[in-house]
């Protein structure tokens, strides 16, 4: 069967602890591999999901470990879509400027890199709110034809 015709759907829910990042990466890796992404693209997808979840743990849940992160992956027509939702504090991604490394260096700033990386690693990154109060980030990667 052609990889592009494959249909795939999987979901996990984890608590908002950095302890769970390894499990999140394993889940993402397995899904990307099952959808026939090569090693390079799989690595990019894993890192983007790690960055999204790290941001949620840090900013939405402020390191309280009892929040929930729901990761739902769907694949059809060559489109690999990862929806990540949380019920933590809402934040406006448009308020975060793109980092300038030289400025960061001067100011000893270390934040904001994750969002920038996600944009560079994925084909599309969308932020939104669903079901009234849940924050959602959707990461999309297309399987090359």
């Amino acid at each position: 069967m052609n990889a592009l015709n494959k249909i795939f759907e999987q979901q996990i829910v984890v608590k908002s602890s950095t302890d769970n990042l390894a499990e999140i990466r394993d889940f993402t890796k397995s899904a990307a591999q099952q959808c026939c992404f090569d090693e390079d693209s799989t690595g990019k997808i894993i890192l983007a999901v790690d960055e999204a979840c790290t941001n949620i743990i840090k900013h939405a849940y402020k390191f309280t470990p009892d929040g929930e992160i729901n990761i739902s992956i769907k694949f059809s027509d060559g489109k690999f879509s990862i929806s990540i939702t949380d019920e933590g504090t809402h934040f406006d991604p448009t308020m975060i400027p793109e980092p300038d490394l030289r400025e960061y260096y001067k100011q000893k700033r270390v934040g904001g890199l994750g969002m920038f990386l996600m944009k560079r690693l994925m084909d599309e990154v969308k932020y939104g709110t669903i079901a009234g109060n849940k924050n959602q980030v959707v990461l999309i990667k297309y399987l090359s034809k």
């Binding site: 894993i46 960055e51 960061y104 260096y105 000893k108 700033r109 270390v110 934040g111 890199l113 994750g114």
Partner: peptide, 16 residues
């Protein structure tokens, strides 16, 4: 084997 921005941030925090 793997690094995320949290790891990169450590080097940025100390290099200066």
């Amino acid at each position: 084997k793997y690094i995320s921005s949290a790891g990169l941030g450590v080097f940025m925090a100390y290099v200066e």
